[in-house]
Nucleic acid binder design. Structure first.
Lengths: 110, 110
DNA sequence: CACGATACATAGAGTCGTTATGTATGTCAA
DNA sequence: TTGACATACATAACGACTCTATGTATCGTG
C-alpha cells in the first residue's frame, strides 16, 4: 500500500502525463495506472473522480461525454493548455525532490 | 513554491534520510533542506515540528534535549530501528512512482 | 537596547485520500 | 432467466495533514 501523501502528490502528475498521450476516462485511467505500476498503484474511484473534477474546474483538463462500443456512457478527459504547463511544473518539482533525496543517500548536494 | 502535496509526501523521507547521517534538530533540518535544494525547499517550523512529533510518537525517531555551545536549548532527534525500516519503504515507493512517471514521459515522445 | 536570528510549540482553517454508499448498464455462465 | 462480476460515474463523512499565524524565550550584533 502506497502512503496517502505519496498518492496525493503523484495523482495529478500521473493523470496529466497519461492524458498527454491522448484522451481517456476515469475507469481506464485507474486500469492503466495499475498496469503501468505492475499492480502496485491501485487507485480507487472515490479518490480519482474528485481529483478529475478539481483539475477540470481549475482549467487543467476538459471533458466530453461519449459512448463505448457497447453504448455505455463515458466521460472522456483531455489536456488543456494550462494542463501542459502544469505538467512541466510537476516534472521540475519531482526532479528537484528526487535529486535532493538521491543526494542525501549518496552524501552529495544538489 | 513546491506544491503542498509534494511537500507532504517528501517531508518524512527527507527527514529520515537526513537523520540517517547523524542526529540533528528542527532548526538545523530546515537549514540543511534549504541548502541541499539550492534554496528551493523552504520548510516552515510550523510544518516541521508537528511532523517530528508525529514521527516520534510513531516510534520512527527519538529525541533528547541538549544544548548548543552558547547554551541555547535544542531538541536533538535521531533514527530508531523502525525509522530505518520506514526509510527503506519510502525509497521503494518513490522509485516506483518515479519509474511510472518516467515511463509515461518517455512514451510521450515516441 | 533594539533587532534579527535561533529554537521550539500549538491552534484554526482549508485541502485531500479513504471508505462507504448510491445509481446504472453490459457480459457470461449456470 | 437469474445471479455474479466488471464497467462507469458520483458524492458524503471522517480523519489526517500542511499552511498561516501566534506565542515564548535566548543569543549576537550594531
Amino acid at each position: 500500500m502506497i502512503r496517502k501523501e505519496l498518492v496525493a502528490a503523484s495523482a495529478e502528475p500521473l493523470i496529466l502525463s497519461l492524458l498527454s498521450k491522448g484522451e481517456s476516462y476515469g475507469y481506464a485511467i485507474i486500469q492503466e495506472v495499475k498496469a503501468r505500476s505492475g499492480g502496485k498503484l491501485q487507485w480507487t474511484d472515490g479518490m480519482l473522480y474528485p481529483v478529475l473534477h478539481r483539475m477540470e474546474s481549475r482549467g487543467l483538463i476538459k471533458s466530453r461525454w461519449g459512448e463505448s462500443e457497447t453504448g455505455r456512457k463515458r466521460k472522456y478527459y483531455s489536456l488543456k493548455k494550462d494542463g501542459k504547463t502544469a505538467m512541466a511544473r510537476h516534472q521540475e518539482q519531482w526532479s528537484l525532490i528526487h535529486s535532493v533525496l538521491a543526494g542525501l543517500q549518496k552524501g552529495q548536494f544538489v
